[in-house]
Design a protein around this nucleic acid. Structure first.
Lengths: 124, 124
DNA sequence: TCTTACATGTGTCTTTTACATGTAGGAGAG
DNA sequence: CTCTCCTACATGTAAAAGACACATGTAAGA
């Protein structure tokens, strides 16, 4: 394992983000449960949920199409509004179920992290 | 993006774990701050922190040597006890500092996740 | 002797994330 | 009208992280 310089912060400190794996997925599902929308709009709304760490647009569009392949979201072209045509996504019942599973998993993650932090504080 | 079959659970349900990226790293540092120990021992103690999802031993040993290369842990062979020789790891001051950064990052992650879950519950 | 537990590792593939780039419609400035 | 900017969607590919398979050796006990 080579020491990855991506881990080093500019001034000798460490960049640690503690992101949840594939968090963009539940974030998209939640945004789409609130209301259907298109990729670029989701891209701008995602930071509300993900914080500083924004999702790459390339991966976002791929992710959306992946979710559609799996039947978790559906989409259709929308050229009613002016500007470039948008692909409007909506969550499906399967998508809502998956979001529910994500929510449960995230609650368990909260508990794991809380235990970690408690143990961390114990002998500080 | 090909639909990954690893995501499908056996009976048509979804396997979602919501793990924190590279969580094994702070977990190892925390265990080593409590007391120095060797890889196999850490492997058995890790589930206390990571839950069900256990770390692959192969990756664990690689991770430990990676941490050593970066000066976050130190190690030496210990053949005092019976059985196969063990490589005994200890956390370094740099390692303790990194652990502190991880703890801060994990607290921020807790807040992000809490916001997500609140928003999830709002319009359930 | 054979199996099991302890202990440390390498090799390699897949999945996930990061970075770079391409195409195109329209709006407003000059 | 041309130049630039913002919107919108997309592909290509590299790097990082994780999963899976296997190799090596010590020692204890059936």
């Amino acid at each position: 394992m080579r020491a990855p310089r991506s881990r080093r912060h500019h001034h000798g400190r460490w960049r640690v983000l503690a992101r949840v794996e594939r968090f963009a997925e539940p974030a998209l599902l939640l945004l789409l449960r609130e209301r259907p929308s298109h990729g670029y709009d989701l891209l701008e709304r995602l930071p509300e949920l993900t914080g500083e760490a924004r999702v790459e647009m390339g991966n976002l569009y791929r992710l959306l199409r992946g979710l559609e392949e799996e039947g978790l979201v559906s989409s259709e072209w929308d050229d009613s509004s002016p500007g470039p045509a948008k692909r409007r996504y909506a969550i499906t019942p399967d998508g809502e179920r998956l979001l529910d599973h994500w929510a449960e998993a995230l609650r368990r993650a909260q508990q794991r992290t809380a235990r970690f932090l408690t143990r961390y504080e114990e002998r500080r």
